[in-house]
Write a protein that binds this DNA or RNA. Structure first.
Lengths: 352, 352
DNA sequence: GTGAAAGCGCTAACAT
DNA sequence: ATGTTAGCGCTTTCAC
């Protein structure tokens, strides 16, 4: 007897509806009615069926039922986020889960890692499992590949980043606006030499934040030469190194705008390492835990990931409920949280 | 024309294998062979089938196939964590996802919120979707209800918390050991009056950490009366309030052991608010982001959630591969990270 | 190398 | 109020 057969010996196959029907002495359709809470079954029969189901540990097979069911709903959603390990993604995920759970919908979650190929594979994996809808953070330059799914009627909502090449719903932060707000805040405190530390240029939100940053400088008539723009940072380590290079350079910035949560953490490390955290201003995009307890506290442009996730999930369910309005783009505002680091004046004090 | 029918008008039903077969001019079984990479199809036929599949945007229906497939595998896992919004859970989740993705397995993730009812519902939702295995963080006092699933052959691995009432695999941190290590560290720095701030007593790990805490005090012959033990804290707010009460009381502790990540954050807030963060020692269980940049840095007993998640997922796949060894309990060690807060001496200096 | 027929567990449609 | 039959999209079995 091999280990496999030994294992099989102990395992009863899962009970089916037919077996429940047999044990209860009723037809299979009656069991179906009871399990699905359909009317026209006497309380006595209902009880007999429930007893039989309990006795056999019966669990209905959602996928088998779905195969023939008119609405063909799996009550399942596919969610693609930056990384389930990132606090921003976690908050989005939680909001989606809450909205889905209310409706008896389960959520497949996958991490994108800003890798276009992972996106394609995750979406394909979702579709093969016939999810009712897709909530996607995208890493591809163009999402035309989703066009067939949209035509098939599968709702797709983009969260955090806007779609490109297809017309569909999106829920995003006010990236450019938030970044501009950060810069204006630093400008108001007298800074002129503000460094930009940004994520991969391939990421739409990174480009938006950079645009907001540059626009704000432009509006203030600050020559862009004064602003070192460092892009393509993708984690704490690279962000730290980039800022260390700036701080060690000939003309270090008096203020820093770090355009993503991990980059902010990397920047904080660099400033501490050079002992420059009390004289170099810093505003981060996206809030980070414990930012309020650092000295100085970290001023941030907070996003509202719970709102992004909740609204995205609600759009999906509205679409599933038949809403066929033109695709919408919802922009969720950001909030400046003043904590100290963003209010540090430049060395010479406020100029002009 | 209602909005629903208008919507339907634009949506083509999803292509089936039969349609692909028709378009390619072959039998359905040949399409099946091509899609599943089975042998005995000529390259020419293969190409014709792939072309047809492409033309129809064909995506195989994993669940339909699974209905008849011999192994009945959905290539899907159910994961239940504390909350997808918690950094510890996020790290566990990510490790599970990585192990699963390698094998083409998708992950359903749900948040437990330490609510027994949510656990039951999440597990039922997983089972109705015929997940191949369950990785569970539990909130129930007894998991005997899973016995039928184990008999059906569904692998169940507990992560973070140990099972009760059933024999199955578990992957947990060394909670008691880690807590004891924290206390020993504080004792070594001269503390005798050490407060314990713990999570819900209903949580197994919380009880373990409390046990480790009390055992270490006992071994050091420190009377337990000196140690205020506050339990049933469940978020930053309650933890903060509890510590504020202790600090404002007649005989405040000289050191604090906060037994969970959110509790540590709440404790940090309380200490700051009273300006006691430089003279009250603190060791936290579970690491928190930016703990190293606070002043003083926060000394913690770090867990290794990535290891917990990875090992749990590996156990599941080993079981699915036929491993029928007796159930295993894997204990992942903790790591003391010294950063400053845990090395603050008591007011009178080191006693004895 | 390829295909026809049966059937997985369930629901829809139509009995009775 | 309950049962019977067909069939969802696929894999299995077995025939050719």
């Amino acid at each position: 007897m091999t280990s496999l057969s030994a294992r099989d010996a102990g395992s009863r196959p899962r009970a089916t509806m037919r077996q429940v029907a047999e044990l209860a002495g009723v037809g299979i359709k009656t069991v179906s009615r009871v399990i699905n809470g359909e009317p026209n079954v006497t309380p006595q029969t209902t009880q007999r069926v429930l007893d039989a189901a309990r006795a056999l540990d019966y669990q209905p097979d959602l996928h088998a039922g779905n195969l023939r069911r008119a609405d063909r709903r799996t009550r399942t959603l596919g969610l693609l986020v930056g990384s389930v390990d990132n606090p921003f993604s976690g908050a989005v995920h939680r909001a989606v889960e809450d909205a889905a759970a209310e409706r008896g919908v389960a959520v497949f979650a996958s991490s994108l890692d800003d890798d276009p190929q992972r996106e394609r594979e995750a979406v394909a994996a979702f579709l093969r499992r016939r999810v009712d809808g897709l909530i996607l953070t995208t890493a591809t330059a163009d999402q035309t590949y989703l066009e067939p799914e949209l035509r098939h009627g599968t709702p797709v909502v983009f969260v955090d980043r806007e779609p490109s090449g297809i017309e569909t719903d999106a829920v995003v932060s006010d990236n450019a606006g938030g970044a501009a707000r950060a810069v204006e805040h630093l400008l108001a405190h007298g800074h002129r030499r503000i460094a930009y530390l940004g994520d991969l240029h391939s990421i739409q939100t990174a480009r938006e934040r950079r645009r907001g940053f540059l626009d704000a400088l432009d509006r203030a008539a600050v020559p862009a030469d004064d602003a070192p723009v460092i892009e393509d940072l993708h984690d704490q380590g690279t962000a730290r190194e980039a800022l260390l290079r700036l701080l060690d350079g000939p003309n270090p910035p008096t203020a820093v705008f770090s355009a993503q949560n991990l980059i902010t953490i990397g920047a904080l490390h660099a400033l501490r390492e050079r002992g420059r955290h009390r004289d170099t201003a810093l505003v981060g995009f996206d809030d980070v835990e414990l930012a309020d307890l650092l000295e100085p506290g970290v001023t941030v442009i907070a996003q509202h990931p719970e709102d992004l996730g909740r609204i995205a999930a609600e759009r999906i369910f509205e679409r599933l409920d038949g809403d066929d309005a033109p695709s919408q783009r919802v922009v969720v505002g950001t909030t400046l949280i003043v904590r100290g680091s963003g209010e540090i004046p430049p060395p010479g004090g406020r100029r002009t």
